[in-house]
Amino acid sequence: MAYCVRCGVKLTDGAKSCPLCGTEVHLPAGIEEPVAEPLFAEPLPKEGTKGITKAKKGMLELIIILGVVGELTVAISLWIANALAYSFIPLFSIGIAALSLLAIVLAKPKYVQQASWQCLLMAVLFLGLDGVDFAWFWSLIGAASLLLFWFCGVFPWSRWAAEHKKVSALMMLASIIVFLVFMNILLSQRLTWFAPVALPMIAFITFMTGLFYIWLTARKIKRIPVADMILGILVIILGSCTAFDFFLTHYQKGFFALRWATSLGIAAVIILTFLIGVSVSLRFRRFFTSHNQHD
C-alpha cells in the first residue's frame, strides 16, 4: 500500500496516482502491487449526459403554461365576443412571443445564436401577420431587412466568419446588393434606381472603405488613434452623401451635379486633406497633436 508523498494519505493498492492531488506513485523497482477492487463495478463513462437543468426546465414549463393560458384566454374571449374571425393575429403573436422566450432559454447564451433565432422568429411574425389575406408586402421589406441585418450584424460575429474573413466580407457585400435589387423590384416592379444610383453608391462606399482600411493597416504603428478613426468614418459618410446626391441628380434630372450636398463634399475634402496631411508630414501631425510619439 503506497502513500501520497504530498498529501500523506494512504492510497488503494495499485493506484497510479493520488486522487486528491494527482501526484504519481513511484514504487521501488521490481515491486508490483496487486490492484485493489475498483470502487464501483463499472468505470466512469468518458462523458456526462446532456439534459436540461432545473432552472431551465422551470423557465420552459412556465413559458409553455403562460403561452397556453394566454392563447386559451384570448381564444375564449374572442369566441364569447363572437369575433373568432379576428383571432389569428393575437393568437399568432402570442405563439411567436412564447417561441421567442423559449429560444432565449434553449439557445446557447451567445450573441450569434440568440440573435439568429430572434431574427428568424421576427421574420416569421412579420410574414404571418402580413399574410392573413395571403398577400404579402410590408412583411417582405421587414423580412428582407432582418436578413440583411443578419448578414451584416450577426453573421460576421460567428466563428466561421472569423475564420474566413474575406469570404464573409464578400458575402456581406453580396447580401447588400441582393437586398437592394430585391427592394427595387418589390417597390417598382422592375429594376429602376438600382443600376444608376445604388450600384455606383455601393462601389463608391466599398472603394472608400477599402482605402480607409488600407490606410489604417499600412501604418507603421498599429495603434489607431480614435481621432483618425472618427475622421475617417466621417469622410466616408460625408463622401457617400455627396456621391448619393451626385448619382441621384443624374437619375432624376439626367445630368451630373450636386444639389444639396456641396457643403458636405467640401467638408469631406477638407477632412480628407487633413488626414493625408497628418499621415504624410510628421511636422504637420505634431502641430495638431499634443505628443510626438506618432509615426
Partner: peptide, 13 residues
Amino acid sequence: IDVEVATNRNSER
C-alpha cells in the same frame, strides 16, 4: 488521523 482514499475518477487521478 490516518486516511485511506479511493476514487472512481479516471485511473490517472
